[in-house]
Amino acid sequence: MSEIVIDVGKRPIREINEEIQAACKTGSPIRVVNTLSRHNLGIGLPPGVRIHFEGSVGYYCGGLNTGATVSIERNCGWAVAEGMSAGHVTVGGYAGMSCGAAMTGGLIHVKGDSGPRCGVAMKAGNIVVEGKIGYQSGFMAHQGKIIALGGAGHSCADALWAGEVWVAGEIDSLGVDVNVVEPTAEEVAEVDAILEPLGLVDSSRNWRKMISGQRLWYFQSRDAGAWLMI
């Protein structure tokens, strides 16, 4: 199938998305060029689509993705693939703030660093960052894994729910209510299974796994008697 090329430039974003959606229906691979870091490119992509963004993109690229394979050649702005339920998003360079915010499935692979709040409020899925994850990454992550092969910025894994943050490098500081645990061999194998298709397995890594301290899970005693005092 021949590739469909869509030129962004200064054209209206709505029009470009309509062209992308139409191209998705053809089943051909899509190449979006001249992206100029524009926002909202490739919103709500359907499953099975392969789309490549040449250069850098702005905010919310690949937002609400439902199963497309998205690759961004260079950097992306805020909240790449926010709310994604399935699919595979690759960022060649730096991912801006809130990478994978509130995603509910799929995989995000960032080859550079990611900005602050990587994986904020994510509900499932995995984020792999080859570089360093920024400030307050993993904030309120409900489930899923954030895996940083580089280090982590300040307030790492702040107020996690049942999500996990894995860091192989230096951590500037931990957020509130975090426990750092020694992962078991099986758990490392699970992470390696995510890294394996990306060719990123390295057995020499010294993983630190961060999970919730669970102190902030309970506002008060769950004992029904205590409720009556309120």
């Binding site: 974003i13 905010y59 919310y60 926010e82 904020v120 309120m140």
Partner: peptide, 26 residues
């Protein structure tokens, strides 16, 4: 106990909200 965030994860202010609204419209 579910205590939700008050700030949205992907916009921090009305200036970013303008971009977010465009995303939702699309």
């Amino acid at each position: 106990d579910q205590r939700s965030t008050i700030r949205h994860p992907d916009f921090l202010g009305a200036d970013d909200l303008a971009v977010k609204l465009e995303e939702l419209r699309i």
